[in-house]
Simulated assay, not measured.
Amino acid sequence: MAEQMERVERLFDWIDHTTKIIESEESVPYLEALIASSGLLFDPQLPENMKSTYEESLVNQLDRINLKDFSMEERRKAMQIAILKGMKGATQQHHYVTPDTIGILMGYLIEKFMDGQSEFRMFDPAVGTANFLLAVLNQLKNKKVEAFGSEVDPTLMRLAYNHTNLQEREIEYFHQDSLKPILLEPVDVVLSDLPVGYYPDDENAQGFQLKAEEGHSFAHHLFIEQSLTYTKPGGYLFFLIPNFLFEMDKDKKLNQFLAEEAYINGVLELPSSLFKEEKQGKSILILQKKGNEAKKPRKVMLAQLPSFKDAQGMNRTIDQINEWFANDR
């Protein structure tokens, strides 16, 4: 483990140093420079007619690294640290990187729910830099997953593209507003850390059942509805939701919609230690879209997860989850 962390640190140091060189020479923000530096890792071709000192600095950097020395998880973690550094101080909700421990747990849950299916299609409609999607894919080692992602922010989309190339994966991306029609056949699994807030396009929101009667609609409600649209009957949806999601559903519109469209399979509250403030707390919501052979579980899997550092507590929780699959699904 310590050796792996050393390699992650070594790769991050390279990415960070190269990014700073580009940031300084090109007078661009860190994230823009990170797009260029991470691109050099998998395609080390330098542009022509560069200033000689600038070219020499980058050539020296490229001589110091060999991407093949690093595993896929080491590459992902090094990129994640660099992205976090670039986003430090960003206030927008979509500039938020999902913690690794959640990716590991989500991968475990998807593996359990998709037991018996060696191949399936998975979509993240709020893919961001693709860190969460890639973390989960790296957990699904025994599955052949055809993956898709959608993202409106051009900087995040370019980071996702480079991040995916560094993982040597094929993911099809849609650079668009994910709440508009997507050229995508329905998938078996939807995975998403839901963007929380108001959706500004009132005209487009009119096409959704979960639109607000007046004012802006909740983006997180519309994302749930849109995700169900692009899920096959009987398919599963795994959302990271704010703990207050159902408290904010004053008119019970979301509750009623979910009762008509899906079966709730589980709500797992994540440990508060993962979040700076209590109001930022999140849970994992697991749905199965009605239709095909979907059936209501005998009881909903409910759990308040202990700290991920509490090994005994986590083992007890995993035992409870396994018991639910054996007896209550």
Results as ranks from 00 to 15, higher is better:
residue 84 L to T: 01
residue 81 I to M: 12
residue 61 Q to I: 00
residue 72 M to K: 15
residue 39 G to F: 02
residue 77 K to F: 07
residue 29 P to L: 04
residue 45 Q to P: 00
residue 90 A to I: 00
residue 25 E to Q: 09
residue 51 K to R: 13
residue 55 E to I: 03
residue 73 E to D: 14
residue 30 Y to T: 09
residue 60 N to D: 11
residue 24 S to F: 00
residue 25 E to P: 02
residue 57 S to I: 01
residue 29 P to E: 12
residue 96 Y to H: 15
residue 83 I to V: 09
residue 33 A to P: 04
residue 79 M to S: 12
residue 52 S to W: 00
residue 83 I to Y: 00
residue 74 E to I: 05
residue 37 S to T: 09
residue 22 I to V: 09
residue 69 D to F: 08
residue 47 P to F: 09
residue 48 E to A: 15
residue 55 E to F: 06
residue 62 L to W: 03
residue 22 I to K: 04
residue 39 G to L: 05
residue 62 L to T: 00
residue 67 L to D: 02
residue 81 I to L: 14
residue 79 M to H: 07
residue 96 Y to E: 13
residue 73 E to C: 08
residue 91 T to Y: 14
residue 36 A to F: 14
residue 27 S to I: 07
residue 54 Y to E: 03
residue 79 M to A: 11
residue 73 E to W: 15
residue 57 S to A: 12
residue 27 S to V: 07
residue 86 G to P: 02
residue 38 S to G: 08
residue 44 P to N: 01
residue 63 D to I: 07
residue 25 E to R: 14
residue 62 L to R: 01
residue 44 P to W: 06
residue 47 P to E: 04
residue 68 K to L: 05
residue 90 A to W: 04
residue 87 M to D: 01
residue 31 L to T: 12
residue 57 S to P: 00
residue 71 S to I: 03
residue 81 I to F: 11
residue 34 L to S: 09
residue 78 A to E: 04
residue 61 Q to N: 05
residue 92 Q to W: 13
residue 49 N to V: 01
residue 37 S to I: 08
residue 64 R to V: 03
residue 73 E to V: 13
residue 69 D to S: 11
residue 21 I to K: 08
residue 51 K to H: 06
residue 43 D to F: 14
